[in-house]
């Protein structure tokens, strides 16, 4: 990246955590601006136009989820939720409110930076988000041409597997909610029917075709209780 690094708005009321985040981000070339309240977060996001926002859910003045929702209402920059609330429903709620990703405290510095990279790369690709290719390791997917190659050989997918993979490729690097996958692949009805196992059956099938060790997937990983993520960096 040329010029000053991307600006990260850190919304965190714990001074120690805020300092740590600033330190980690600073070492990776980010400029950081720290606010401790939801009110300040909204004000600073409007005036400073950050490239990415990190939001802690436990803020003193208002719920972080509300902050995410308020930001998402007008802001395009990726939002990463960083919270000690580790319950799956909290993660789903944050993603629903418009967060791009979710990181549970405690986390490692490497993981935080990797998630930020993914979020920024996504934002750089623009809002249309129709990314047609995916490459990681020896895996190459071209959605446009309906082509999957693994280690140089073609992989054949069924139509449903294709639909599923296409959705994951479009959101590569991001967690996709189980509900959203169900809706996009099997339609609105499936989303309401509680047939999450359709998804798991096809994910298992995809893994057998895409992964070296399907039982210990490297690319198509499960976010327990939340959804799936197609990892684009190991």
């Amino acid at each position: 990246m040329t010029g000053p690094g991307p600006l990260a708005l850190v919304v965190e009321d714990e001074p120690a955590m805020a300092r740590l985040l600033a330190s980690i981000l600073g070492s990776a070339g980010y400029r950081t601006f720290v606010v401790a309240t939801g009110r300040d977060a909204l004000a600073q996001a409007a005036t400073r136009a950050p490239d990415v926002v990190l939001v802690d859910l436990g803020l003193p003045d208002r719920d972080g989820i509300d902050v995410v929702r308020a930001l998402r209402a007008w802001m395009r920059a990726p939002i990463l939720v960083v919270s000690a609330r580790g319950q799956e429903q909290d993660k789903v709620a944050a993603l629903d409110a418009g967060a791009d990703d979710y990181l549970t405290k405690p986390f490692g510095a490497g993981e935080l930076l990797a998630r930020l990279r993914v979020a920024l790369r996504h934002a750089a690709r623009g809002p249309s988000g129709d990314v047609a290719t995916f490459a990681a390791g020896d895996l190459h997917v071209d959605v446009e041409r309906r082509e999957v190659r693994r280690g140089g050989t073609d992989v054949h997918l069924t139509p449903t597997e294709w639909k599923l993979l296409a959705v994951l490729v479009r959101h590569a690097g991001h967690v996709v909610l189980q509900r959203d996958l169900l809706r996009e692949v099997w339609g609105k009805a499936a989303e309401a029917q509680g047939v999450g196992h359709y998804l798991r059956i096809y994910v298992a099938a995809l893994r057998r075709k895409l992964e070296d060790e399907p039982a210990q997937p490297r690319w198509l990983v499960t976010e327990p209780g939340v959804g799936y993520r197609l990892r684009d960096e190991a």
């Binding site: 309906r146 069924t158 139509p159 449903t160």
Partner: peptide, 17 residues
């Protein structure tokens, strides 16, 4: 037992859609 997912063709047609 879980309800089985809808039938799926064994293979996708290859090449550009």
């Amino acid at each position: 037992a879980p309800p089985a997912p809808p039938m799926d063709a064994p293979d996708a047609p290859r090449g550009p859609a």
